[in-house]
Amino acid sequence: MNIFRFSGDMTHLISILVLLLKIYATKSCSGISLKTQELYALVFLTRYLNLFTEFFSVYNTVMKLVFIGSSLVIVWYMRMHRVVKLSYDKELDTFRHYFLVVASFVLALLVHEKFTFQEIFWAFSIYLEAIAILPQLVLLQRSGNVDNLTGQYVFFLGSYRAFYILNWIYRYFTENHFARLISCISGLVQTALYADFFYYYFISWKNNKKLQLPA
């Protein structure tokens, strides 16, 4: 464990707490893409298949359970909660995210570290996470003004993987045979997808204006 990875995990956790706060406090999920939340639940369920077979640390196991649990709770809230589900932007959240799942799975079948069930699903989860934010970014552009908590959620979610990139660089130089090409390349793509969001987020913060994404 290193400070970059720990910061990344904490930033990721903060993004989830901010999203839970928004949904719980406002009893609304307007501006949140259910499709991105479903993709993230799939990412965690397929990435942590080793949850019960490999033990690294209490921290690692607890965080896996928190990520899996929170993503399922958020999907449940947006689908089933009698009040929250009414505020879901059903007609705006129309990204065909099944294509993202299929594309990631096909790529995982082609590019993986080892042709085993667990490794293919691990690679699938890495590729899927890189593009899982797309429905959310499209929804933000369509829904025009973005409320603060939603903006902060996306900001922290995008930032966490940037910390992981620093972690991979650090591990590359400190551990002789550390090479995580799949994670690194996907992580770079994932962070790059947030580039324009970060730009508009910074502009809105500098001018102290509401976050506006160009349609």
């Binding site: 490999e54 690294f56 080892k114 992981y164 972690n167 045979h177 994670s183």
Partner: peptide, 10 residues
Amino acid sequence: TQQPQSHDEL
């Protein structure tokens, strides 16, 4: 030897 290390990252 590029043994795939077990995935210790979240």
